[in-house]
C-alpha cells in the first residue's frame, strides 16, 4: 500500500511539472532583449529630426510625427513640442 501511495504522488508531481514546463505562456514567451538605438527620419521628405525643432513635426516639410501636444513628463517636456 505505501508503495502504491508513493507512486500516486510521484506520478502527480511528474505530470504537474511537465504541464508547468510545457504550457505556453500567455502572450508568448518573454525574452530578455538587449538595449538598442533607433532613429525615425521624416517618412515624407527624408529629413532627420533635430533636437531644436522638437519631436512632433518635421521642420522641413511640416509632416506630423505625432498628432498630440506633449506635456511635462519624466524625460519629455512641453518644450519638445515642435
Amino acid at each position: 500500500m505505501p508503495e502504491e501511495e508513493k507512486k500516486r504522488t510521484q506520478s502527480f508531481l511528474e505530470k504537474l511539472k511537465e504541464k508547468a514546463l510545457n504550457q505556453q505562456n500567455y502572450g508568448g514567451d518573454g525574452t530578455f532583449e538587449e538595449a538598442r538605438m533607433e532613429v525615425r527620419d521624416c517618412p515624407n521628405c527624408g529629413a532627420g529630426r533635430a533636437y531644436r525643432d522638437g519631436l512632433t513635426a518635421c521642420a522641413y516639410c511640416g509632416f506630423s510625427f505625432m498628432d498630440i501636444k506633449l506635456t511635462d513628463g519624466i524625460h519629455i517636456k512641453k518644450s519638445n513640442n515642435s
Binding site: 518573454g30 532583449e33 538595449a35 538598442r36 532613429v39 525615425r40 529630426r49 533635430a50 519631436l55
Partner: peptide, 10 residues
Amino acid sequence: QTQNTFLPST
C-alpha cells in the same frame, strides 16, 4: 543634434 530613440534592455 538628431533625436535617436534609446530602448533599454528587458
